[in-house]
Design a protein around this nucleic acid. Structure first.
Lengths: 197, 197
DNA sequence: ATCATCTTGTTGTTTTTCCAACATACTTTT
DNA sequence: AAAAGTATGTTGGAAAAACAACAAGATGAT
């Protein structure tokens, strides 16, 4: 268990929390560690969620199957990232699956326990909540930006909106793009070959 | 001030918090009340945000001006709803304006103070954080669903995805749609007249 | 160095959307 | 009841995107 904590020590979720405090966190939040083989389902569509996950090792993908059975990749989870936290908090049944891309290890934490801290109200608990608020708010901002791009009607406008946002974010007319062409096309929901015209 | 609290007493933000505790909240979170005339700017694009808002009276709209100057309405804020909370938490400069549609009153609360509770760690403070987590998570889920619809390539598929999600949410083959045709077209980012074919 | 694989650019055809204009139905106001 | 306003349905032509298929270039492994 201590071993797993070492791997996630610079995760945003536990930012500014001392290593000593982490082991007590596991008790407070009913931490459970699970291992998954490549290809296994970590969370499945339609199953209720009470805990959110923190990936300690491996790689996961969040996928969605629409009413026609088409698969689309919503996001890739890398080590130290959390997932399913929003669904855990609103007690909604998620409409996506999480699958292990390689052999993976996940630390599940109780979302209820996190937001209703124990009576002693330990300092690390406050910090955890603060970190979680930051992470979810950040996702929120990113989702809003994605929608801003996708709301544009034309591929050209979607792309220009994306580039404009990146330029602002990186505060320069030159900036780094984290996607390759196909990836960017998928992100914007357009055809790769249409992006160049 | 007490007057304002009365108006928001069944806001999700202060769910399960006693009225007596609310006045101490105002102190803790450095509550500030501001009034706006119809048409005035409540928050402006590019200005840093340290507080988030809770609308106590009136009606606001969140709008965005893209690089071409085109205006698009992101959301309408009704009384008891909070706004700008995600941007306040990540300390990112918002890319949208908030404008008063009618004369409005806003209670601004300090986001830092909320997530770093005072030493005594009052019980209402815990509840506030819990409520905020719920609200933000819920927005997150809604944004994700919108993206799910908009990711579909064709208008027909966007619409079917939306309908399918609503059907699941309302757990019935018959369900209520909160938008009129034009509103739904705007939400999905398509042409109204193309939705019917 | 060669081969296989992945990424990107290019093209032509088909499909779909956009846009603008107008007809019809429904609501609200006077 | 009439009028004005709003929401919805319908259309045809222009514009754009989707799709599929292939070429050229880059990358990586053996």
């Amino acid at each position: 268990m201590i071993n797993e904590l070492e791997k996630i020590k610079d995760s945003l979720l536990i930012k500014d929390i001392k290593l000593e405090e982490l082991s007590s966190m596991l008790g407070c939040l009913r931490g459970v560690i699970k291992h998954y083989k490549k290809g296994e389902e970590v969370l499945s569509q339609g199953a209720e969620i009470k805990k959110f996950g923190l990936l300690t090792e491996g790689k996961l993908q969040v996928v969605q199957y629409d009413y026609l059975g088409n698969k689309s990749i919503l996001s890739i989870i890398e080590p130290k990232q959390i997932f399913a936290e929003a669904y855990a908090y609103v007690n909604k049944i998620p409409s996506m699956n999480v699958e292990a891309l390689v052999d993976s290890t996940v630390l599940f934490l109780d979302s209820d326990k996190l937001s209703s801290p124990c009576h002693n109200c330990c300092t690390f608990h406050k910090q955890l909540v603060k970190n979680l608020l930051f992470i979810i708010s950040n996702k929120n901002v990113n989702l809003t930006e994605k929608i801003e791009c996708m709301s544009q009607r034309k591929t050209r406008e979607k792309l220009l909106t994306f580039l404009s946002l990146e330029s602002i974010k990186q505060n320069s007319k030159e900036f780094y793009i984290q996607y390759d062409r196909q990836g960017l096309a998928d992100y914007l929901g357009v055809e790769r070959s249409a992006m160049i015209q």
